[in-house]
């Protein structure tokens, strides 16, 4: 099982929480508002299961929640029998990307993509 502290050391990760599929917090490494992050992680993992079933999209890989009015994005992915939620700090180097667009979250997507690549290296996820 991956160590949350190891995930928190990745560039761009501010905190991490691991929950069971029932929403019980197994492990947490978040300074501010861990309950909120856990609640969102629980909620999105359940939503992902519903969506995947409706659309026959098969396995849930990850989800990204971002806020247009500021606030740290949240990256959620399944790991073994649990779900992990990572609070992301979008690097300043990416802030200029797609800054004029109010319609989508390119810089958050790029940051999440970088983090996922590193997580795959740690966990061996495909």
């Amino acid at each position: 099982m991956v160590d949350l502290l190891q995930l928190c050391e990745l560039p761009g990760v501010k905190g991490a929480v691991r929950i069971t599929s029932d929403g019980e917090i197994q492990d947490c490494s978040i300074d501010a508002s861990p309950d909120i992050v856990a609640a969102i992680t629980t909620h999105l993992s359940a939503a992902a299961r519903r969506i995947g079933a409706v659309l026959n999209f098969k396995d849930f890989e990850h989800a990204l929640l971002s806020y247009r009015d500021g606030g740290n994005p949240l990256l959620i992915f399944p790991h073994e029998s649990a779900f992990i939620g990572l609070v992301i700090d979008v690097p300043q180097t990416l802030v200029g990307i797609s800054n004029s667009s109010q319609t989508y979250f390119s810089k958050e997507l790029i940051a999440a993509s970088h983090i996922l690549t590193r997580i795959r290296a740690i966990t061996g996820r495909e």
């Binding site: 396995d59 849930f60 990850h62 990204l64 806020y67 606030g71």
Partner: peptide
């Protein structure tokens, strides 16, 4: 989510093995 996080300007991006939402 807007109740939990008190924000109504959010975007969500779900990735699955056979699609994206």
């Amino acid at each position: 989510l807007s109740t939990i996080q008190t924000s109504d300007s959010m975007d969500l991006d779900f990735f699955f093995s056979q699609g994206r939402l």
